[in-house]
Structure formats: C-alpha cells, structure tokens
Amino acid sequence: MKIAVCVKQVVSREWQLRVDESNTWIRDQDASYELNEPDAYALEEALRLKERHGGEVVVCSAGPARVSQVVREALARGADRALLVEDDRLVGADAFATASALAAALKDERCDLVLTGLQSDDSGFAQTGVVLAETLGLPHATIIMEVQVADGALRVKRELEGGWFQWIAMPMPAVLTIQSGINQLRYATLKGIMAAKKKDVKKVAAPDLAPQHEIVRLYFPEKAKATRLIDGAPADAAKELVRLLRDEARVIS
C-alpha cells in the first residue's frame, strides 16, 4: 500500500508570537518551528499501516525552503521518501493554495491513501485535507480515530461531537484527516536520523497559486473579560487567591 502523508511546518508552541511591521503576519524570521502536531499523528498512523500492510510512506510538504526541516524529521521517524513543494509564496498561504501545491506533488503518485492532520496549529483552517481530496477527485473523511484496511476497502472511525463516533466505509484511494490522539507517537531514533540523510527528497514546482483570502490585519485580541491578575511571590499570590475564592467569589468554604 502506498500512503502519502501531508505535513506542515508551524511555529513552535514555545515561541513568543510577535506581529511583523505590516501587521498582517508574524515575525517569522525570528521564529522557531516544529512539525504540526496533528500531522505527526497522521504520519504515525501511516507508519503503522505500512507495518501492518506493507508498502511505502511518502511524506509531502509545501512551503518555503525551511520546511525541509519537518520533511527530514518525518523521514527520520520512518517515512521512505519525500516530495517537497518549495515556494516562498506558500508562507501563510490559505488552504486552497496549500492544497493545490500538495496536489501538484501527489497527482502522479497514484497513492492508495493520503493522510494529513485535521488542522494546523498556526492558521487552523481545518480545510486543506478536504480541499486536497476534492482537487484530486478522491473521497474523504475527517477527524478520524481509527483506520481499517481490508481487501482494498477502507473503514474509518470518524469522531463526531460530544463523545459520539461513526464508522464510514469508502473505496480507496481516499484522503483522511487524522485526529490527534489516534495513536501514540514514536520519535526519531539516532539510527533513523542517520538513515534519513540518504532518503530521496524530490522537489516539485509550485503551480499557479490564486489566493482565496487576504489578511488585512493580524493582532492580539482585546480581552473580553477583566481578569484579576494576582502578583507577588507564589506563597503570597496563593494566599490572596484562596482569600478571593473564599470571601469574594465564595466558591470554596
């Protein structure tokens, strides 16, 4: 089985966000980056499917030159080879642009399955996987918590809201967006990191990108609620908080 996994490089959670001079994007030249967490779960699921059914895992990413970092990481975790659509116009791109770049890389690969995370930690569109499916003419299902493959057919467990689930059957090839927590992640071993250096990374030219939206202004939101921030040394702040909860909010006795 040939499985593609689409991964995104996002700014790391630890990085203190700062808005750039144009007020339309972050100061990303100062940022540190990591693999989008839901995509890490998609990669892990692909690796597990390969272990069960055999085949190949192809990692695919679209972005500026720096995204080769997450591609290398995916190869180190066990992906077999990589497709990289490198273009600076993909910084902060909308889901349609990203999906068209990914589709350009995947259209001739004839994968049985394309996996990606349900959304990204940066833009959070929750669109790219589904738009990619439509672009490639493939069926899809989203927010998947279990993947079963038997006799060329697919049965997946889709998460609904409020603790409900649903099984969906569909033919392959198909695109699935994977929910975080579907599996337990593995991390790259030293051996994996060494092996990754020899793996093939093929660069693919980006297609024409027609943006679907533009960010007019990016800003820190104004607080909707007045939070009473309690300063001081931990012991003093703790005492004051307990006093407030007892005497003012009256939610503890």
Partner: peptide
C-alpha cells in the same frame, strides 16, 4: 498571552510547580 486568561476571572502568571504547592498549603 495564553488565551485562557481571556476567560479567566482570576489569574496567576507563574510556574504552576511553584504556585500549586503554595495553593495547597494555603488551602
């Protein structure tokens, strides 16, 4: 800057490993 402070009535900006034991002691 954590968005949780958007909805919080009371907040302490600090290391939970210092603040929480202090809270337990105060309670």
């Amino acid at each position: 800057d954590a968005p949780i402070f958007e909805v919080a009535d009371f907040g302490i900006v600090g290391d939970l490993f210092e603040v929480v034991p202090a809270l337990v002691a105060a309670l």
